[in-house]
Nucleic acid binder design. Structure first.
Lengths: 149, 149
DNA sequence: CTTTTCCCCATTGACACCCATGATTTTCCA
DNA sequence: TGGAAAATCATGGGTGTCAATGGGGAAAAG
């Protein structure tokens, strides 16, 4: 299986268009449908990205919960209501909806950050700061945890 | 499989007509029959929407599972009694019955909210408030649930 | 005959698609 | 091994198409 790996800095044009990194586009789920799913991160000022298969997986999981349960209800509204299926055009670009841009505090330059089965989109400066503090925390708290699993 | 995803704000005209979002209309169950099923939510001031196939699925589930509680059974019958199959016209619009409008406290602007295999129709302001509180709860109670990659 | 429901046409604004360019990388042959 | 040709990629810009919406009128129901 292929994965979302590495970090790429691409530019957003005045129309809100930005190239999805070519290596990300090669991901099976994106090639198959020509689409990528984006949604606002719950915990960080960034955008989360994945393919449709991942969404379908979630949908099925939620569907198997007891009908009318509270947990199902909450999960559904949060995830699916916020998820944007975006078409990737012939030149490999998507148009970033404005509210997503605002949530992630994006300006012209965007960082596409690989995370394995998903990826994130950050403002490059914010991402740098976030990485730095993560690194420091990891060193302080639990160096042994890194690479477990 | 396709899913109901994202949130769209559309306008209801004086005749009670409103466009079903194009991406919702592409859903197989809606294309096939040209119809959408709506019924009043039991738990929220909103309208629930799905396709005929999902109704059939619900019906079968109720039949085949003796484990269904008395409450679930009566809920089910309420759903079927309340369900309205509405025709989608040539331009992709439906006419919202007045009692549904009242239940969901709708005015001119409506929010079509994707929930995977179903969707909801909300007043945009009510929906915004609801989402906000759900988001806060999710962060407090179960951050692990939140789409960890 | 009156009222409701449905169908048709017109408008507008967003976005999906088209082509072009330059920069970088890869290929491949001298 | 060097270097030219070809391919790939990120980016800029123009334009046609389609979704959302408004309005009119025919068919159907009561």
């Amino acid at each position: 299986m292929t994965l979302f790996l590495s970090t790429f800095i691409n530019q957003m044009d005045p129309k809100g268009r930005v190239s999805v990194p070519a290596s990300f586009r090669e991901q099976v789920g994106l090639v198959k449908t020509g689409r990528v799913i984006l949604y606002r991160s719950f915990t960080h000022p960034c955008i989360e990205g994945c393919d449709i298969d991942r969404m379908a997986l979630l949908s099925n999981a939620a569907d198997q919960m007891p009908s009318f349960s509270k947990e199902q209800d909450s999960l559904m509204s949060l995830v699916f209501a916020d998820a944007r299926p975006l078409n990737i055009d012939g030149t490999g670009r998507i148009v970033l909806p404005e509210d997503l841009q605002i949530h992630a505090r994006l300006s012209k330059k965007l960082a596409f950050v690989g995370r394995g089965k998903t990826f994130q989109i950050w403002d490059p400066d914010l991402f740098e700061k976030n990485q730095k503090s993560l690194r420091e925390d990891a060193l302080k708290k639990a160096p042994s945890v890194v690479l477990s699993s």
